[in-house]
Amino acid sequence: MTATRAEHRRRTSRRVRLRRTLVATVAVVLIAGGVTVFALSRGAASPPAPAPVADSTSAPAPPPSPTPTPLTPAEKLLATTTDPKACAVSFTGDGIALDPRVQTEDARYDGLPLPRADGRVFAGWYATAADATSLNAAERINGADLVACTDRQRTLYAAWTTPEANAAEDTELPILMYHQFTTKPEGEDNWLRGNYAYIGDFDAQMAHIQDGKFYLPTWDEVSAFIDGALFLPKRSVVITDDDADSTWLELAAPIVDARKLLTTSFVITSARTEPTPNRFVMQRSHTHDMHRAGANGKGRMVNDDADTIAADLETSAKILGAKEVIAYPYGHYDDTAKEGVRRAGFELARGIEPGYVRIGTDKLALPVVRIDYGMTVEDLEAKIG
Rank of each mutant, 00 (worst) to 15 (best):
Y198E: 02
V35W: 12
M301D: 09
F231A: 09
R9I: 14
N166L: 14
L40N: 15
I352Y: 04
V237R: 03
D220C: 03
D245R: 01
V325M: 09
Q153T: 14
V222E: 12
P68Y: 09
L364A: 06
L71C: 05
R20Q: 13
S236N: 05
A252M: 04
R101S: 14
F280H: 14
R116H: 10
I141A: 06
T133K: 06
D307W: 01
G355R: 08
E221P: 00
K363C: 06
A271Q: 09
V256G: 07
G385S: 12
L114I: 15
P217V: 10
W125L: 04
R140Q: 12
T240D: 03
R279S: 13
D151S: 13
A310Y: 09
G119E: 07
V147G: 06
D201N: 14
P52F: 02
G33I: 03
R272D: 15
G200P: 07
E274N: 09
D110R: 11
T69P: 01
Y198M: 02
D335Y: 00
A130E: 15
P185E: 15
G34E: 14
I268K: 02
S236D: 03
V23C: 06
E221N: 02
K234D: 06
I141L: 09
S58F: 10
F280I: 05
E347F: 00
I359K: 07
P48I: 12
G355K: 07
R370A: 12
R5I: 15
N296P: 05
Q210W: 08
E169C: 08
T183H: 01
P64S: 15
S41I: 01
A54E: 11
R15D: 10
E221G: 00
V377R: 12
E324R: 14
R235F: 01
P185C: 00
D335L: 13
D118G: 11
D245W: 09
E339W: 02
D257H: 12
E221C: 03
F38K: 03
G33Y: 02
T36C: 11
A224Y: 02
A197Y: 00
T308Y: 12
L135E: 11
A49V: 11
P254R: 01
I309D: 07
T72D: 05
I384H: 05
L262E: 06
A382V: 02
I239C: 05
R20P: 00
D289N: 07
R11F: 08
R193Q: 05
N190A: 10
